[in-house]
Computed example of a mutant assay.
Amino acid sequence: MYKIKAPVTFLLFMLCLLGCTGGAAAQGKVKDLFKVKTPKIQYVRPDTTILIKYEDFPDEGSDADESVFFNPKKELSIVSEDTSELDLGEQHIVEMSEEVLVDSSWIKIAGYYAIWDTQNLNPYKMDGRQLQDTVDIKLYDLASNRTYDMPLEKTPITSHFGSRGGRWHYGTDIDLNTGDSIVAAFDGVVRINKWDGGGYGNYIVVRHYNGLETLYGHMSKAIAEPGNFVKAGELIGYGGSTGRSSGPHLHYEVRYQGNPIDPENIYDFPQYLLKGESFQITSALFTYYNKAKSGSSGGRRAAYHKIRKGDTLSGISKKYGVPVKQLTKLNGMSSRSTLRIGKSIRIR
């Protein structure tokens, strides 16, 4: 390609091109002069040594129950070379190359391998307990215009990460009113927008530049679509109580390669800010898996709540995330039944 040094030279070049090669051919070449180079996506052979299939909770088919545990390996077939299939819900392993235009030259700023899956919450199947090294995550970088925001304007916590009602709760529940705006916590690309009737309801998963993924569950409406780039603070959906939910709230998760991290390790919710600019991920963050898995193996377990003064069905329902209708069914009672102090009520 000729190197154009001045506007006059450029004009002469164009006239010569049109006169010498003919109209149709010339138009094609002129168009190429202004072609914008897009980031590269090259398919590679999957590393099947780390891909393992799901283990479901008995009697539960929701994404929330399928997303954590690790079982025998399952190979993937060689990925297709058709890049148009990226957003069709199929799993691919792709080589990503991020480039920026500097002084008319494309400069590679990042290259990495990644699994892109628009249907499965945890396609990575990496057991966090097996991490050998400390992973340093830069949560935000103002110099690179990578900012952060809280998912809601107010963040009063209604339920914490950990064991709850005989099962493990992999996120933090934040109170809201139906219709409240929910925004992306960090810059990134939407990977999943899906309905999960037995768990998250309407939910979105965003993959971020800092290496984390965040999940936003129980929304009344999820508006960001897979493949959408979103900035921190950009609207992605509206609050609600869809799926397995006892009332309007946001179920918020932070994950690293599919492994849930207690959001309160990263956030100071009462103060409405992050605890720091960076965060370190080690295998110690995931030792809770031992408790979580032992509580889920061997079938469903009955769990009970001992009634105390001031308890109500709605209060117990909210505390354990179990609908009032389910409580009444489990205990052979009606929603107007009297709760007797000292007695136990089955919650699972």
Rank of each mutant, 00 (worst) to 15 (best):
Q271F: 09
L274F: 01
K37M: 11
D136I: 10
M96D: 12
M219A: 01
S278T: 06
N210W: 06
S181P: 07
G179P: 03
Y170W: 14
N331P: 14
A6E: 15
D187P: 06
F57D: 14
S283P: 00
G198D: 15
S159H: 01
S296W: 05
H249F: 02
D180V: 01
S344L: 09
E98G: 08
K291D: 15
L215V: 13
S344G: 08
T49L: 10
G23C: 09
R191L: 09
L88N: 13
I157P: 02
I107M: 06
K154E: 05
L285M: 04
F34W: 01
S144T: 09
S80R: 05
T158W: 01
G197E: 08
G162P: 11
G243M: 07
L131F: 15
N145R: 06
V254M: 04
R244T: 04
L139M: 08
E225I: 06
Y113I: 14
D196F: 07
K31T: 08
G298A: 07
Q271I: 08
D141L: 05
E264F: 00
D175S: 15
Q132V: 12
T172V: 03
Y170Q: 09
K29A: 08
R336H: 15
G162H: 03
G299M: 12
K231A: 13
G111K: 13
R207C: 08
L313P: 11
G23R: 09
G165W: 01
P270A: 03
N259V: 13
Y267F: 14
Q326N: 12
N193I: 10
L250P: 00
G227F: 07
Y304V: 05
T21S: 10
D133I: 10
K35H: 03
T48M: 10
S317K: 06
Y289H: 11
I192S: 05
S344P: 08
S67R: 15
L313N: 10
R336E: 15
D47Q: 00
G321Y: 02
Y200E: 05
F286E: 00
